[in-house]
């Protein structure tokens, strides 16, 4: 544990508060009536896809392409996930296989 118990509890509350704001806000803003705003509806349709793209990049933001592993473990693991996903179409196999592949790469190959 890096933080004290009190600090840890405060961080948990912050993560909870942040999450709840994002879940409750639309219901508070558009209280009672359905949103008839076609622009908001459009964003609601397309934004989830763009948000996942952002999250993929977010996860890879600290990969260093100038060394020491040149981003090879990440690239190989993602190619592995793509291969598994198109081959078996099993979400858990793709996630599990990709993670195990990555762990092997960073623990045994690119040390």
């Amino acid at each position: 544990m890096t933080l004290t118990p009190m600090e840890t509890f405060i961080i948990i509350c912050m993560v909870t508060l942040g999450t709840m704001i994002t879940r409750f806000l639309p219901f508070l803003i558009f209280k009672g009536n359905k949103s008839n705003n076609s622009y908001i509806n459009y964003l609601g349709t397309v934004l989830p896809y763009a948000a996942i793209g952002l999250l993929v990049v977010y996860c890879l933001k600290d990969v260093n392409f100038q060394g020491p592993t040149y981003g090879f473990p990440e690239a190989i693991a993602i190619l592995g996930i793509i291969f598994l996903h198109y081959w078996k179409e099993n979400i858990l196999l793709s996630i599990g296989g990709g993670t195990v592949l990555y762990m092997v790469l960073v623990q045994a190959v690119f040390i």
């Binding site: 544990m1 405060i10 908001i40 948000a51």
Partner: peptide, 29 residues
């Protein structure tokens, strides 16, 4: 939890990561 204690940063990062929920909410009104 593994870096210096910074609750405001934790709150802001959580808001950013979970901002997509705003659009789930709009879909579920």
């Amino acid at each position: 939890l593994t870096s210096a204690f910074n609750p405001l940063y934790a709150l802001l990062m959580t808001l950013i990561i979970n901002a997509r929920h705003l659009f789930y909410g709009i879909s579920m009104l």
